[in-house]
Structure formats: structure tokens, C-alpha cells
Design a protein around this nucleic acid. Structure first.
Lengths: 133, 133
DNA sequence: CGTCATGCTTACGTTCACGTCATCTTCACT
DNA sequence: AGTGAAGATGACGTGAACGTAAGCATGACG
């Protein structure tokens, strides 16, 4: 059924990152792939977690905070004694994300305007001779 | 008229960062405050630039790329021989920002849903005795 | 006039997120 | 049995973005 196990090489190609990065995330407790002897085998769950990791990373969330939040996405698991705390964390992070989005919206508007202004400037090629033949 | 010059201390309090950070940004050519003898004096322009710096930083833009973009906001200045290139850069960055916002929107929706799911779970306090008296 | 706080410069230290060897197993082939 | 490619495990290196500590300058104040 869940024979959807992948080696580290396939994972790297799928997510465009290096083996080192995957091992690093594992060492940081963000991933915990199965082992076939020594070799790592990544499951569907690992891939789901990795997607969340990369998403968080893109927004500047530290790996440590990502780790704390990942539990929230494993609601089928045990060990949810930490769940209330995780929910707290998630709501704080959610608020930050909303704030970040609002600021991002403003930045986008500003940058758009500023580009328009710049485009409307006299051609800087006309350096010392604005009225040359 | 533009007597709105501030010392480094005032700047730090206004933007909630350390002197080290301001000097560091200066060394990286992001700021160039006036000097009164040795002391730095920050103008309105410096503050405007600093706001942009902090904004970019929040979205994960590197200081180096911020530096390249800052010129776009100094359209009253000389040295706009680099302007076309700066506009190019700005448009690429703008595209990235839009993409980031879209992804951020998705992340916000997902996280909201996930929090709702977590809240709807059986209380993990009921550990070994879900039906206790 | 001493000293004390504030600021400057220089330089080395630190954290995060990996990159880069060097070395060792293990498995697939010939 | 040999060989080679892929993966594993340390250990050390790196770039970005500051922190921290040492030592000099200077203006304010009792």
C-alpha cells in the first residue's frame, strides 16, 4: 500500500536539494526516514513534512520553529501531550504570517509604483548632451 | 529645514536595533550618514532607506540585493547610469514577491485549517482512561 | 581637573544553514 | 575476487548577519 518509499537520491531530485540538506534536517529532528540497513528510505509522510519545511523556510521561519510546528500536521500520531502548546505556537505564527502578508502587499504596491516612476525618467544615456543631434 | 538629524542612539531606539547593526549596514554601503567630527548623524533619507532595508530583511532579501535595489528609491540622485539594470532587478524581485505572497496565502489557509482540526481533537488529558468517572 | 558616559574603530567570536572533504560500507556487476 | 558507484558518518569549512570585547577620543559635569 504505502510502497511509495524513495531513496535519498530520488528525494533530492524531487525537491531540488542535496543529500547533505536531508541529513541535516534529519539531524535536526525535522525528518525521520526509515532505514533499510544503513540506507535512508523516505515515505509519503517524510515528503509531506519536507514540503512544509521548505514552505516555512521560504518565509524565513527558523528550522527550530518549523520543528515545533510540524507536530501540528501529524494529528494522526500519539504524543499529543504537547498539542495545546503547539496550537498556541501555531496561532502566534499565524498572526505573524498575516502581518507579513500585509506588509508584503504594501511592499509590492510601493515597488510597483517606484518602478513606474523610474521608467518615466529621462533616459540617462543623455548624459552630458541632452539635446544632441 | 532638514534639521531632522538624529544621533545613533535615537536611531537605535526608533528602529529597535543596535548601534552595531547601523554601523554594519553602513559598512555594507546601505547607509551613509553624515559626520559631525566622528559622530554619525542620520538624516531623513537615511531613515527612509533604513525602513526599506528592514522591510526587505523581513522578506528574506539579502542585504546585498537590498543594496542593489535601494538605488531605485533615490530617483532624485545622480549616478543613474545603472538605472535600467536596477529596474530589471526590481521587476524580478517584484515577481518573486508576488509568488511569495501567493504561497504565503496558501500557507495561511492551510495553517488555519490545521489549527481548526487540532482544536477538534479529543482532549489529550484523557490519556489512559477516556471514560473515567 | 578628573571621570564618566557615549561613540568610534578594529578585531575576533557566534549562530544558522548548510558545503566540502576524507574515510568506510555495501551492493551491483564483470 | 575486484572494482566502482552510491550512501553513510564524522569533522571541519563557509557566508551572511550580526554580537562582543578591547582600546582610543571627546564632550558633559561635579
Amino acid at each position: 500500500m504505502s510502497d511509495d518509499l524513495m531513496g535519498i537520491r530520488a528525494m533530492c531530485e524531487m525537491f531540488d536539494l542535496t543529500p547533505r540538506t536531508l541529513r541535516f534536517y534529519e539531524q535536526k529532528d525535522l525528518l525521520s526516514p526509515l532505514r533499510e540497513g544503513q540506507r535512508r528510505l523516505y515515505s509519503r509522510r517524510d515528503r509531506a513534512r519536507l514540503k512544509l519545511i521548505l514552505r516555512g523556510r521560504r518565509f524565513g521561519v527558523s528550522l527550530e520553529e518549523i520543528r515545533e510546528l510540524l507536530d501540528l500536521y501529524d494529528l494522526a500520531d500519539q504524543k499529543h501531550l504537547q498539542l495545546p502548546r503547539t496550537i498556541e505556537l501555531a496561532e502566534r505564527r499565524l498572526a505573524e504570517m498575516r502581518a507579513q502578508r500585509d506588509e508584503l502587499d504594501r511592499a509590492i504596491v510601493d515597488l510597483t509604483d517606484q518602478i513606474a516612476l523610474a521608467r518615466a525618467l529621462p533616459d540617462p544615456q543623455d548624459h552630458d548632451h541632452p539635446n544632441a543631434a
